[in-house]
Computed example of a mutant assay.
Amino acid sequence: MSGPKTRSSATRFAKTATSRRSTTTSSGETVSPKIGKTGQRTEKLRTTVDLSPADHRRLRRIADRLADDLDLVEVPRRAVWLALLAEVDADEGLYEKVLGRIKADREET
């Protein structure tokens, strides 16, 4: 078993919060703390997307078509999402198309 913690979570949280709060100097000037660089995340993150049955079928059709074109048994849907993210990130024109579609979808609702 591990030994008792020397500092409680509440103490650590309070110290962290204090380091992030702005302070007021005697002359009334507000001074914000310098923002440091946080650690880089190295573990994968899980994202869940809720799809309608029609959208799920469309995703499956795209993955199946890619598998046929690549002469593979299957292309994982994750690979489709990752390829789409890379393309949107690299192609400004595609990004603008996606932006327009999202704007249009938001106006419909």
Rank of each mutant, 00 (worst) to 15 (best):
T47G: 08
R65S: 14
G100I: 02
A67W: 05
V31M: 07
R12F: 02
L84Y: 02
T23M: 09
S32V: 11
S22D: 05
A17E: 08
P33Y: 00
V73E: 09
P53A: 10
K5P: 01
K103A: 07
A90T: 05
S8N: 06
G100R: 07
R77K: 13
S26P: 10
D105L: 13
A86N: 03
S22V: 04
G39C: 13
S32G: 05
P33S: 03
T30M: 13
G36R: 13
T38D: 08
I62N: 02
G93R: 11
R41D: 01
P76Y: 00
L51P: 06
S26I: 12
L82N: 03
G28C: 11
D50T: 15
P33K: 06
T48Q: 13
K103T: 07
K34Q: 11
D55G: 10
T109D: 08
L82F: 03
T38A: 15
S27M: 10
S26Y: 00
E43H: 12
G3Y: 07
G100M: 04
P76W: 00
V98C: 06
R65F: 07
R20F: 06
A79W: 00
T6A: 14
V31N: 03
R21A: 14
R60H: 10
D69A: 15
L45M: 12
R77G: 05
D71H: 11
L99C: 07
R20D: 02
S9L: 15
V80R: 02
P53M: 07
S32M: 10
E29F: 06
A79H: 03
T16N: 13
R58I: 08
S27W: 00
S27G: 06
P33M: 03
R65G: 15
R12I: 15
D64C: 10
T109K: 14
A14I: 04
D69W: 07
A63L: 04
V88S: 01
P53Q: 08
G100V: 04
V98H: 01
R61Q: 14
P4F: 07
R78T: 14
V98W: 01
G39I: 12
Q40H: 12
A54Q: 12
V98D: 01
L59S: 03
A79N: 04
E108N: 06
K44D: 10
V75H: 01
D68M: 14
D64M: 11
D105E: 09
A54T: 12
T24D: 00
R20Y: 00
R106A: 07
S9G: 14
L45V: 15
E108T: 06
W81Q: 04
S9V: 13
M1E: 05
R41N: 09
S26C: 08
D91L: 04
